[in-house]
Design a protein around this nucleic acid. Sequence first.
DNA 1: TCGCCGCTATAACATAGTTATCACAGCGTC
DNA 2: GACGCTGTGATAACTATGTTATAGCGGCGA
Lengths: 204, 204
Amino acid sequence: MTSATAERHYPAPMVQLDSVGSDLLKAASDLLASDGPAALTVRRIANAAGVSTMNVYSRFGGKDGVVEHLFVEGFRRLAAGMTSIAATSDPVADLMTCGLAYRRFAIDNPTLYSVMFDRVVPDYVPTPEAHLLAGTTLGLLADRVERAMTAGALGSNDPLSTAALVWATCHGVVSLELKEVGPTAIDWPDVYDRAMTMIVTGLA
Amino acid sequence: MTSATAERHYPAPMVQLDSVGSDLLKAASDLLASDGPAALTVRRIANAAGVSTMNVYSRFGGKDGVVEHLFVEGFRRLAAGMTSIAATSDPVADLMTCGLAYRRFAIDNPTLYSVMFDRVVPDYVPTPEAHLLAGTTLGLLADRVERAMTAGALGSNDPLSTAALVWATCHGVVSLELKEVGPTAIDWPDVYDRAMTMIVTGLA
DNA sequence: TCGCCGCTATAACATAGTTATCACAGCGTC
DNA sequence: GACGCTGTGATAACTATGTTATAGCGGCGA
């Protein structure tokens, strides 16, 4: 957080945390969910976890390290939700189920979603490792897309690129829904449904 | 910026600014474009404009007021680009031209786009007036959509809701492109093209 | 038992947004 | 023409932030 040019490197996100570390993460997540990104300060996180601010630095290398953990945790949850959807004989239905799971994740974790996609914490930019994780999650979707392609339900094309298109469409709708842009008259869940049918018919 | 609960009210964005005011806005815009949102500080804006920080408060009510101006300016440019596209006899082509103009705006003004859609400046949330402007811009798109519907090129549906769907799709693609999520191998301009054809075929 | 190492809390530092203070210019009034 | 008011703007002070330095404390090995 000091200088943008210095190379960033936070403790590996996957490592097992001690109780203070997990308390800090939980406190940060709760703060973010309850009071928004502006409330996510090092002192408040430490206070909520009942420890001193130094723990944030010794364990996470600073505020951005905590945010990185939240970022990664978000993508892990998203990926877990995606993989938990068993493949059926109907690839298109599977794709739609994935889409619904995506929206559910975003609606249920709006602040986490903001961390992942809105750069809502100033100065935090994901590390290459975190970027890689996001790419992996996209790969999960690409697998579903490819299955639908081989089944003939979707026109043949680059699966990754097509997955990016599907992802972008879903992301665009929930993103605008969460930001409450435009008139409140818009029925966003309905728009989301139409987006998914648009995808399967438009890419057939 | 002091408290989130207090009602916000910035000077009307449409009023003619004096030279100091416009200097401040230009300085803020330049800072945002050159050094990113983190560099957008009151002191730096004032320094770049060659005046004291107080001017930011007397003219814009604080940092958020400056950001609000940028937000509004962004939507005005976007709306201007939209209205500058003359309606032809081919409503679908017009819609695609609008889509291309949308992406061009986003790519040409990435930081402005971030202010408008990413909440990249901490604590700033658009005022109801700014929200209204965003809704108006959506209405411009809805007009194009409705024209395509009456021409039979798009299936009949609520124009505003459909415009929201179109907007969300375009926004989703450029948003992911600008954030550089996923593998760099993705050809985002191509994805955008495919998104637009997906829209017109999927909503036909 | 002594001494060193690591961890944690406290306090200090730089910078942020914001607000208070104060000097000064412009103008009306006597 | 001089005095005082008003209002603008520059300076400096205030609170809060991320971060870093300092110092105390305990635990472990010798």
